[in-house]
Amino acid sequence: MFQHDISLEQAYSFSRLDETCLLSTVTAHPFELEGDTWATAEHYYQAKKFVKPQDIEEITKSESGVDAYKLGNRWWKRGRAKDWKQKRRVMMTRALYTKVMAFEEVKEALLDTGDDKIVETSMYDPYWGIGRDQRGENMMGQIWMDIRAKVRADIRIKAHGISA
C-alpha cells in the first residue's frame, strides 16, 4: 500500500491548463523561440510534437493555449515526431524558461514559490502531473523547480559581479 505524501499538502500546486496561473502553460505570454513567435508555452510545446507543416500551422494559429493543448492531444492525430517522448521534457523546459526570461511577472511568481515543492495537480497525466494516485512523475513541477534554481543562480552571479 502506498503512503500519503505529506509534502504535497505543503506544496505550491497549480494546473497546467489554468489560464489565471502564471506558471501554467496556457497563459497569454507570447515569446520568441527558434525563429518563431509563440502565443503561449503550450502552443510551442504542442507544435513541436508534429512534423507535418499543416499540423504545426493549425496548432500555431489556435486561439488559446487550451485550444493548442486540445489540438495537440487528439488521440487519432498522426504525424508525431518519432522521438517525441525523448524530447518532450526538453521542449517544455525551453518554452517555460523562455517565458520566465521574457516576463518579469512570471519570474516573480516563480520566485515567490520560495523553497516549496511545485506540483502540477493533473489527476489524468501521471507524467506532467502527480496523477490520480499522487505517484505521478510531476515533470512539470520538476521543470519549474529546475528553472527556479537556475534563475536564483543567475541572480547570485549578477549580485556578486561574476560574469558567466
Rank of each mutant, 00 (worst) to 15 (best):
G141L: 07
Q86W: 14
I147H: 09
E57R: 07
R16V: 05
M145Q: 13
I59N: 05
M101E: 11
T60Y: 13
Y12W: 12
D55L: 09
W75Y: 15
T27R: 06
A95N: 01
D112S: 08
F103N: 04
L8W: 12
A68H: 04
E137S: 11
W76N: 10
A153T: 10
I157Q: 15
K49S: 03
Y45E: 00
E105H: 06
D36Q: 13
S7H: 08
Y44D: 02
G114Y: 07
I59K: 00
I143K: 04
V106W: 02
L33N: 11
I130C: 12
G35P: 08
E137R: 13
W144C: 00
Q3E: 14
G141V: 02
M101F: 12
A159V: 13
K158G: 12
F14P: 01
L96I: 01
Q142Y: 15
Y124E: 13
R88A: 10
M140D: 06
K61I: 05
K49C: 00
I6N: 14
I130V: 13
T113P: 04
G72Q: 06
I118V: 07
A159D: 12
E32N: 11
D115C: 02
K107E: 01
E57H: 09
K117P: 03
Y69V: 04
N73I: 03
C21G: 01
P53M: 15
S15H: 11
A153K: 13
F31R: 06
E105V: 02
G161S: 09
W75M: 13
H160K: 12
Q142E: 15
A28H: 10
L22N: 03
M1G: 15
V26N: 00
F31D: 00
W76M: 13
E108C: 07
M101V: 06
R148F: 00
N73C: 04
A68I: 00
K87P: 01
I147S: 08
L23A: 04
R74E: 05
S64N: 02
P53F: 14
S13W: 08
Q54K: 10
A102H: 06
I59H: 02
P30R: 10
K52M: 15
R74Q: 00
R88K: 14
L71C: 03
Y97R: 12
M145W: 12
I56H: 10
F14G: 00
K48E: 06
F14S: 02
R132H: 08
W38S: 02
M139E: 07
K77Y: 10
W144F: 02
N138G: 06
V26A: 03
I56P: 04
G161C: 12
G79T: 07
D116T: 07
T25I: 06
R132S: 08
Y97E: 10
